[in-house]
Design a protein around this nucleic acid. Sequence first.
DNA 1: GAGTTTGAAACT
DNA 2: CAGTTTCAAACTC
Length: 761
Amino acid sequence: MREETSKEEMEVMDTPERGKNSQITTSISKFEDSPVFNFLNSLSPIKPVKSIHITQTINPLSFASLPSVFTSPHVSSLRESRFLRRHQLSDPSKPEFSSDNGSVVERNKGKMDTKKLDEQKENLDPGTSNGQVAGEPSCEFDENFNYDRNSLKDKHVAEHAYNHSTLVPLVEETSQRQLYGSEVNKEGVSQIDQHKEAASCDWESLISDASDLLNLESPNDAESFEKSVDPATTFYRSIKNAMQNMHSLCPVVSGEQVGGRSEPENLLIQPGEGHESMDAESHDIIAGSSITDPTEKMEYEHLSGLYRGMRRRCLVFEMAGVRQKHLEENSGSDSSVLPNTTSNLQLVPTKRGNDSSCRVLPGIGLHLNALAATPKDYKIVNHEASASGRLLIGPANFHRPNSDQESFSNILADNLLEREIDTVENVGLPVEDPCQESGYMANEEINQCSPKKKRRRLEQGGEAEACKRCNCKKSKCLKLYCECFAAGVYCVEPCACIDCFNKPVHEDTVLATRKQIESRNPLAFAPKVIRSSDSLSEVGEDFTKTPASARHKRGCNCKKSGCLKKYCECYQGGVGCSINCRCEGCKNAFGRKDGSGILGTDHEFEEDETDTTERAVLDGTSQRTAIQSDIEQNMDSVPPATPLRTGRQLVQPFSSKRKPPRSSSFPSISSSSGFPASQPFGKSSFFLPPPKFDQHFETVMEDEVPEFLQGGSPVGGIKSSSPNRKRVSPPQRVETSPGLRSSRKLILRSIPSFPSLTTNQ
DNA sequence: GAGTTTGAAACT
DNA sequence: CAGTTTCAAACTC
């Protein structure tokens, strides 16, 4: 097993070393062929996998890594990954490294000195600074955990390296550097300590840089990184130089050679490393590989940010009910990778009321919880729908990176879309970001820890969640009037609500209320805006389209606003009006009901949704169609049916498939967040709500997960049921519209299955 | 910051 | 299902 992992790692490392890998594999194969090996194999149920396995294992590893990421909230997977990278790879070239270091340092010390923090804050954007600072606490554990892991790994590596520096093919200079460093350390413990100290110091100094980097997000900060790193960097450099010299002297060092020689050693070494270390490495490697590209890094960051944002409140929400389970489950599921993280999250003391959100993390919102609860679901969701991932926040995040790049890409695309949308909005529409970023940001960020505002936006849900603040005076924040509640998040300090019951303290009440609402409208907490992943990815370029691609499940009922103001949920969600809308005088900039809008016809939307849903579910395109059709059909009959996702089932509580009134629309986020039970997909939770852009995200997110819902297109179906029915009625399915719809029809036919899904609830 | 407008949510 | 009321956000001043 280990061997495989090591191999995988090697592969991951990719680059020139592959040749090595081949060699290694050969050696391994020899090893395997040995009588002893055979004997062992006979004893062990585990069949010896040859080099081939490696590839497979890699994936698993990646997954494992994901969870870790997931677990770490604020810091977000990114940091962790980065962090790991650093330690393991200690790749100076990467700017992130510095940031990671910073985080690491903090971890080590527990917390940065207030002064340092302040400095960092100053350096950082207000939003980011807040997020980091606030968020750090929550993340600390995770970070620490990672740190430990890294240290462990480093130790292992060092040892191994020491014996067989060549063994570690990892590779690249950075990795080599570490190895060398480790070797050096071995030579003298004192040296090691010194190095560590130096490193720590560097880390600290780096932290600020890291924060800056984070803000900047510029991938190419190697230079800055180095500068910032000074001590550590210098140290590594010296080591590196020495290593290079060594290499010059001894050709062996090259990965290939190493692989050839040490194969056996490698095997041993890896095994030696604890699972954790393995995971960490894998993570690191993965991260490294994934991150390698600046663009990728960016994406990563975005995602992480989103996740971060998402986590906050939603998580909190669920904490109440689910927490315990989640904790257990999470620990269990994630445990492999991040057991600590979960605990960490929980542990993370929330500084504020908001903090509760942080706490929540562990619990996650109901939706989230549901997701968390069922790891399987997670995976599914993740893979299938990025959206779900969102809700899940954690999960989604995780998955994306490793397993589903597609989802990842989708997410990224979503982000892009959001951005685009922003641009669009700039053009005409108002952006809500301000709230999020400005006011909420701080709080939210704090909770989330994620510095990046963008992410927040992206995470509609997150934003919504994060940013959302309510002002409820009479509803006690226990009705959908309350944005927080609707989003499935607890109210936080920023909220100006009166007699608020939407707090962790009143979990029972909140949950009960949610159930009631869901009983009425299963989709009440579902994302309001559904976006088809397809639309995103496909549309991609045309942000104009993108908005259109997404739709409001229910549709709006605007009469005076012309769907040009936030009063309009469609507009607010950054999506065009669709057939489902009953609006009068629709002038929605994102797309008019009549189809005159940017996007074009509602039909498209519908299609998109269906597509998205399908995609989310199937990944496979071909399947999609079938599935979509099914889904759509289901939707008609049933809500979103999310057959796919188990979560859906939960989500769908709404008994009546159709009925789900509009609910289908709800903010995915909310749905997720809030009432977890119903919608596992929490995904939506991320995005959903209000947020305009966020919504986009949400929509996106939703697309994936919600897709189910959508798929459900249900929206339409649901819508029909919902108050808006009028709009709905036309509902999509009917297909008044030409071409696109026709497709739908087909889909509907195929559908039948759904009902069962919906039935679950 | 107060008041108005708006449309969703909730209620009948 | 339709109509009305309630509510809080969005908006305006």
